[in-house]
């Protein structure tokens, strides 16, 4: 029975260590900067419009086809007396979060750095009663960036860290 005694000493030593439970809904662990929840559209604070021009790059690259993008002529373009240099701008944008598999490809293909993965807890705690509520429209997608709630992390693809390269 020495082996059983050894097992019991092992469990006792764990008993005396502090528990490792994270008290989840009360205490949220700090998410790393690179955390990937669901894609969000970023907001150009200087010109006060989304970065997205509706170029369909992400829509085409999405492996699960969860995006729908429509573009329009930018009413705020310089040619019509506005302040923006974007000739075209996003008109309607839907992302079906229930379909999204969070592969990060939309972020990587975007030429304008207009889309980023939500790296806050708001992107993870998204349970709803109806899956239709997970289809996000343009307004829902841009709110968080517009109000500055997220600090986006756009990956620098295929490049070594500056610190490690030096």
């Amino acid at each position: 029975m020495r082996g059983i005694a050894k097992s019991m000493m092992t469990t006792l030593s764990v008993f005396l260590r502090p528990p490792v439970t994270r008290d989840y809904p009360n205490v949220h662990k700090a998410l790393p900067e690179r955390d990937r929840a669901f894609p969000l559209l970023l907001w150009d604070q200087e010109i006060d419009e989304p970065f997205c021009t509706g170029c369909h790059a992400c829509e085409r690259a999405c492996p699960v086809e969860c995006m729908t993008v429509l573009m329009k002529d930018n009413p705020n373009h310089k040619s019509v007396g506005g302040t923006s240099s974007r000739r075209k701008i996003i008109d309607k944008f839907w992302i079906d979060y229930a379909r999204c598999m969070r592969c990060n490809i939309c972020v990587e293909v975007c030429n304008f750095d207009a889309i980023a993965m939500n790296n806050t807890w708001s992107g993870h705690e998204m349970s709803v009663h109806d899956r239709k509520d997970l289809v996000m429209d343009l307004q829902q997608l841009t709110t968080q960036s517009h109000s500055g709630q997220i600090k986006e992390w756009v990956p620098v693809l295929g490049k070594a860290n500056e610190e490690s390269a030096s």
Partner: peptide
């Protein structure tokens, strides 16, 4: 049992 499992049990 929770403490033996390094958990906290019901709380």
């Amino acid at each position: 049992l929770g403490r033996f499992h390094a958990r906290v049990g019901p709380q």
